[in-house]
Computed example of a mutant assay.
Amino acid sequence: MSTPGNEGVTSVQVRQHNAITTARYEMSACEMDIVFALLSKLSSQDKPGTMYQVRVRELEMLTGRQWNYKQLLESTEQLNSRIYHIEDKAKVLQVGLLASAEYLKGKGIIELEISEKMRPYLIDLKSNFTSYHLQAALSLTSKFAKRVYQLVSQWKDVGHTKTYSLDEFKYMLNLKDPKGKEPEQYVSVADLQRYVLKVAVAQINERTDLNISYELLKSSRAYDRVKFFINAQEPKQLLIPFELPADDARAQMARKHLETMGIVDAKLVHEILGSPKLTEALFGFVYKLKTEKIKADKNPGGLFLKMNGLR
Rank of each mutant, 00 (worst) to 15 (best):
F129M: 12
F129D: 03
F129N: 07
T130Y: 10
T130A: 14
T130L: 04
T130S: 14
H133Y: 13
H133F: 12
L134R: 15
Q135L: 04
Q135Y: 14
Q135T: 12
A136L: 00
A136I: 01
A136V: 02
A136R: 00
A136T: 11
A136Q: 08
A137H: 08
A137T: 05
A137Y: 05
L138W: 00
L138R: 12
L138Y: 02
S139H: 11
S139L: 08
S139Y: 10
S139V: 05
S139C: 14
S139D: 13
S139K: 09
S139W: 09
L140N: 12
L140A: 11
L140H: 11
L140I: 11
T141G: 15
T141N: 15
S142T: 10
S142M: 11
S142Y: 10
K143F: 13
K143N: 15
K143H: 14
F144C: 06
F144T: 04
F144P: 05
F144Q: 10
A145P: 08
A145I: 03
A145E: 08
A145S: 14
K146W: 08
K146A: 10
K146C: 09
K146F: 06
V148M: 09
V148N: 06
Y149E: 09
Y149D: 09
Y149H: 12
Q150V: 06
L151T: 10
L151S: 05
L151G: 06
V152N: 11
S153T: 06
S153Q: 04
S153C: 09
S153L: 06
S153A: 07
Q154S: 13
Q154W: 09
Q154N: 07
W155I: 00
W155V: 02
W155D: 07
K156Q: 14
K156P: 07
K156C: 10
D157I: 01
V158S: 07
V158Y: 08
G159E: 03
G159Y: 02
G159V: 04
H160D: 08
H160A: 09
T161E: 02
T161R: 04
K162G: 00
K162Q: 13
T163W: 06
T163L: 12
T163Y: 00
T163R: 10
T163M: 13
T163V: 15
Y164T: 01
Y164P: 02
Y164L: 06
S165W: 01
S165D: 03
S165G: 08
L166C: 10
L166Q: 00
L166W: 03
D167W: 07
D167A: 15
D167L: 13
D167E: 13
E168R: 05
E168K: 08
E168N: 05
E168D: 11
F169L: 04
Y171N: 03
Y171I: 01
Y171V: 01
Y171D: 00
Y171E: 04
M172R: 14
M172I: 15
L173C: 08
L173M: 12
N174A: 11
N174P: 00
N174C: 09
N174M: 10
N174G: 03
L175P: 03
L175H: 09
L175Y: 05
L175Q: 07
L175I: 07
L175K: 06
K176L: 07
K176F: 01
D177M: 01
